[in-house]
C-alpha cells in the first residue's frame, strides 16, 4: 500500500510528466488559458491515461508477449488510445457541449498527446504489475492535470499584468512554464 502511495507522489510531483519529463507540452500550452477548460482537459486526460494504462497492460501481457509480436507495441497502443479518445469525445459532447466546444481541436489531439503513449510505454519499460501500472497511469495523469491547472491559474493572472510588448502571449507563457519546471525540481529526492 505504501508503495502505491509513493508511486502516486512520485508520478504527481517528482517525475511530473509535463514539468520533469517534458511530455504532453502541446495541450499544456494550448488549453491553459482558462482554469475551467484546463480542468476539463485534465479530467479527460485522467480518464484516457488511466484506462490506457490498464488496457495496454492487458494487451501487452496477454496478446503481444504470448504471440511474440512485441514489435507491434506502438501501433496497438495507439489504437487503444485512439479508441479511448473517441469514446471520451462522445461522452463529453453528450454531457457537456460547452466543454466540448472549449476544448475544440485539443480533445481529439489527446490521441497524439505523447504523455498518454509515454505512460503506456513506461509501464512496460519499468515492468510494472497490473495494479502498479494502473496506479502509475492514474498518478501521472493527476500530475498532468495538476500542472496544467496550476499553469492556467498563472496565465490568468499574467493576462492582467504589465508585460513588455515583445514578451506578450506565448513567450511569457514559455518563460512561466520554464520557471514552474524549475520550481518542481525542488521535489527531487522526495521519493527515492
Amino acid at each position: 500500500m505504501v508503495g502505491y502511495i509513493l508511486l502516486i507522489i512520485s508520478a504527481v510531483l517528482v517525475n511530473n510528466f509535463v514539468l520533469a519529463r517534458f511530455l504532453g507540452i502541446c495541450p499544456f500550452l494550448g488549453v491553459s488559458k482558462k482554469v475551467e477548460t484546463a480542468l476539463g482537459m485534465g479530467m479527460a486526460v485522467i480518464f484516457v491515461m488511466t484506462m490506457a494504462s490498464v488496457i495496454t497492460w492487458v494487451i501487452q501481457y496477454y496478446v503481444l508477449v504470448p504471440f511474440h509480436i512485441e514489435y507491434l507495441q506502438t501501433v496497438s497502443f495507439i489504437l487503444v488510445i485512439a479508441t479511448l479518445v473517441q469514446f471520451v469525445e462522445m461522452v463529453i459532447q453528450k454531457t457537456s457541449p460547452a466543454l466540448y466546444q472549449a476544448l475544440g481541436i485539443y480533445l481529439p489531439l489527446i490521441t497524439t498527446n505523447c504523455a498518454v503513449l509515454g505512460v503506456a510505454l513506461l509501464n512496460m519499460q519499468y515492468m510494472y504489475s497490473f495494479m502498479e501500472a494502473a496506479v502509475f497511469g492514474f498518478g501521472s495523469s493527476v500530475g498532468f492535470t495538476f500542472a496544467i491547472v496550476l499553469f492556467a491559474g498563472m496565465r490568468e493572472r499574467i493576462e492582467l499584468a504589465r508585460i513588455p510588448r515583445s514578451l506578450r502571449g506565448v513567450p511569457i507563457a514559455l518563460i512561466t512554464a520554464g520557471i514552474l519546471s524549475l520550481a518542481f525540481m525542488g521535489f527531487r529526492g522526495l521519493v527515492k
Partner: peptide, 26 residues
C-alpha cells in the same frame, strides 16, 4: 499472427465504439 492480432484489436475497439455511440451518440 500480426495481422490477426491487430485486426482483432481493431475489431474489438470498433464494437466498443459502436456500442458507446448507441448510448452517448448525439
Amino acid at each position: 499472427i500480426a495481422v490477426i492480432a491487430l485486426g482483432g484489436l481493431g475489431f474489438l475497439a470498433s464494437i466498443g465504439l459502436s456500442l458507446a455511440s448507441r448510448f452517448f451518440g448525439v
